[in-house]
Design a binder for these strands. Sequence first.
RNA 1: GGAGCCGUGGUGCAGUUGGUUAGCACACCGGACUGUCACUCCGGAGGUCGCGGGUUCGAGUCCCGUCGGCUCCGCCA
Length: 638
Amino acid sequence: MPRRGLAVPRSVCYKRGLDSPACLGFSRASGGCMSSNGLELLDRTVGCGEVSEADAEAGREVVLTGWVHRRRDLGQLIFIEVRDRTGSVQVVFDPSENAEAHKDAEQLRAEYVVGIRGVVRPREQPNPEHPTGMVEVRGHQVALHNRATHVPIQVDDETEASEEIRLKYRYVDLRRPKVQQPLFLRHRLGRAARGVLDGQGFVEVETPMLTRSTPEGARDYLVPSRVHPGKFYALPQSPQLFKQLLMVSGFEKYFQFVRCFRDEDLRADRQPEFTQIDIEMSFATPEKIYGLLEEMVATMFAEIGVKIERPFRRMPYDEAMRRFGIDRPDLRFGMEIQDPGDSVEGTGFRVFDGAIDAGGMVRGIVAPGAASSSSRKVLDGWQEQAKRAGAGGLVWIKLEEGKISSPALKALGEERCKAIAEALGATTGDVALLVADSREICERVLGTLRLSIASELDLIPADRWELCWVEDFPLLEWDEDAGRFVAKHHPFTAPRWDELDKLAEDPGSVRAQAYDLVLNGTEIAGGSIRIHRKDVQDRVFRALGIDEEEAEDKFGFLLGALAAGAPPHGGIAVGFDRTCALLSGCESIRDVIAFPKTTSASCLMTESPSAVDEAQLKELHLKVLDPGPSDKDKEGDR
RNA sequence: GGAGCCGUGGUGCAGUUGGUUAGCACACCGGACUGUCACUCCGGAGGUCGCGGGUUCGAGUCCCGUCGGCUCCGCCA
């Protein structure tokens, strides 16, 4: 059964067309042959969106190929807008000019695939709203390449179907210019980046998609081996080790546009498979990497007509945390975390004193101009957010003309409240927000509030681009669940050479030679100088709780390579999807991926993942222990 | 794993306190129309209200469960 009720005449019409020996063209009710078999109209001479006024003045004959975007049938005159990826243009069929073409055009409907020959003319009634609205094509010949009997969603930039429907019928959704544009930009950004890398002598080398699972990091996607019963390949989370090995092999400068796979829960900016521009160079220093990336990023920005100032700003990790409460600060606006200094000391206010006595601190931010708009409900909302982020509470001080309000007014008194708010930089009309807790919690909570309040108050300028290197990350961080240190970047990141000796006694204090590139609060690239000496790698593995045996078992090839004359090296990887999303103004990376997956990592179009035959499983030596709901059980859902 | 929002003709939405035949727009089909441009006008077809269960004389509406989509937390070296 068809998905929607098809009116009989149309499906009859469709069948008739296919029955015709030359189904590429029209079948006439008379039974006569079509004016064209269509093949001669496969050769487009100009894109629909590229038909120009010069063409009109010259009265140029053109051939268009594309889809019927809109039909305006006035009975005698028929207007057809033809669309291809370059845009659309109006074709007019006038029976007094070409009766045969007009008769053919009567049968055209939305999304039919056509070739049209005609002559470009200036319009009698131009439409300045439309890019090609000054001209039209007088239609002289039509070839119908295909009809469209099931078009589940309208191909229209104005009306948007739900994302669920759009993903299911992605091949139709992708016809919409608005949906195509980000993918075209993605192509141009990729080309720009490649051009810079190629120009600097980088060589693109492919690395395996079927590789081995390694500990640390994200959950792997596994591929069962048919030949080796019970063994599995893993899809790469990144080509990290391979690119290091290429350095050992003397490739000097490597890059790759590479798909990476991580089996973790999805977000607007996370897909299970995503693309990195992976880069590695021998004898690298952070300076060399920064220089390369800055040229690359500036070249990519040039594609959207934005000039980027170089060199980019740099900020140590500690400073980013102190001022912005996050390791990827959004520098498009202020509202930095402030230290109220001695204004909060010795107040007798339990919240403040308690935190300070416990070795913690009091920190705050100012929501500028928020006094009048911050109702009790708004303030409660902020408080709620602060608690969710880990704070015990949130102290607010509202400075209004001649009036100060705060839940701490009683405990602190009006003068104190005013002094504290002013110590944070607040003036009349502002709201000061304070958190008293450990350093980590103060930073995390205020960092979270800073972003959400700025967005709420519309304080983030949409047209600014703020790039920043964040450097001097800690090498390791304590993992409460695992009860051990884990690598903040990855286990092959070099410690600062001058802090190597602290690795054994105080691993948490060692800083890494790692760096992230942050654009408007999003991490778009991250990298490091790698460990190129086996003895250092051994020491880092030990700090991570990986003993010699496990290291040999899982990373033997790397250790072998480091012992075989590995040059100092380092690199970086750019999150290409995220970068494309930011530069094209898309909110989700799904919009810069042709066939993305949903938040449950399935593809609504192909209905993957799917069950497979018993025989296939057997061949792979697999048995499914816990079959989820079968596809049949899910039938009713959509 | 957790929280929130959402699911009604092909598509986007409305649907009151639970009450008659589930309504609107666009799309679709037929007809009319020689300058439209989101053409217009007339007519028509199209729905087990995601799925399952419950409460009720009666459920699109209330309750429970479940599936799916999106956002966020956990997770993502």
